Amino acid sequence: MKIIIAGGTGFLGENLDKYFTEKGNQVYIFTRNPKRKNEIFWDAQTIGEWKNSLEKADVLINLTGKSVDCRYHEKNKQEIYSSRIESTKILQKAVDQCSEKPKIWLNASSATIYVHSEKHLNTEEDGVIGDDFSMNICKSWEKEFFEVKNDDIRKAALRTSIVLGKNGGAFPKLKIITKLGLGGKQGRGNQMVSWIHIDDFCKAVDWIIQHETISGIVNVTAPVPLSNENMMKKLRHKMKMPFGLNAPVWQLEIASLFLNTETELLLKSRNVYPEKLIKNGFQFSYPGFDEAILNLLES
């Protein structure tokens, strides 16, 4: 297959690039700073020569968007919003101009679209969507993506949870704080954590591409969310750390100022279930947190 990954130089893009290349596919990355042969310049705002690469592509994956791991002041909020909306909009414009359009377009979204939920398990069918900055970003993003319906393009929005991998994302940070003896619960610890192993993330993307009946909203997350307290306990146990200091909310608020991030990323309860993937027969390599971290802690 010919696969285009827009905004593909981050943690998820690099892993997808490797996964699909190893399977013998041609992968091209759209990026502002092309460094390798398969990378093509784009500014995520205007049509350029990159548009020609979309011709006869089998798959378009759009992962473009400023990281949400920052302070939510007005400038960053605007960049988080516009980087997602503008890139989706310009890709649609480019796709519309193609004589041979991509067969499937997967657009990033986030499991953060669902409300803080400790009890209710959010599926694609009965997920509860709320109204705050993060949720509204996701709603606008998906609205922009599904605005135009091309009969010959299958579209899927990936509501992805926290992705755990050795070489990026949240896991290396969790390992460090656990090693330092700070691996206790964060806040009250009863917020649910939805997560997925990077290998399963790549496999799920491939599965969606291969299964033509899957479209629309897809929760890309492991089937067993767990509480923050339970997650940290399992991590301490596997890393043979006898203790981990708890971090109350006030401490996290101070730390987040120094770390230039927001406490929402740790304290929001994401309780999400991948009903569409499961119903379509997807098999997780790491359905539970224990087997996932055993694999991730292997050197």
Rank of each mutant, 00 (worst) to 15 (best):
D126N: 15
I162H: 06
V148I: 14
I153R: 03
K143E: 14
Q97T: 05
I162G: 05
I129N: 09
G168Y: 15
T160L: 05
T88L: 04
D126E: 15
S161M: 07
L174W: 09
S109R: 08
T123V: 06
R154L: 13
N136P: 02
N150R: 12
D96E: 13
W141N: 02
N150L: 14
G189W: 02
S99L: 10
S87M: 02
K103C: 04
D132L: 11
G169I: 05
L174F: 15
N190T: 10
Q191R: 02
E100L: 08
N190I: 07
I162L: 12
D132M: 09
K89H: 12
W141S: 01
G183H: 11
S87C: 08
T160C: 06
S194L: 08
I90Q: 03
F171R: 07
I113R: 09
K103H: 04
V128E: 12
M192Y: 01
K93C: 08
K155G: 04
A170C: 08
L180S: 01
Q191V: 01
M135G: 15
I129E: 13
D152T: 13
G168D: 12
G187F: 01
G184S: 02
K119T: 14
V193Q: 09
G127A: 08
G130C: 11
R154K: 15
G168I: 13
V148H: 14
I129Q: 14
L182C: 08
V193A: 00
N122F: 00
K185A: 01
K173W: 02
Q186S: 07
G183T: 06
G130S: 11
S140N: 14
L121Y: 00
A94T: 03
C138H: 10
S87Y: 00
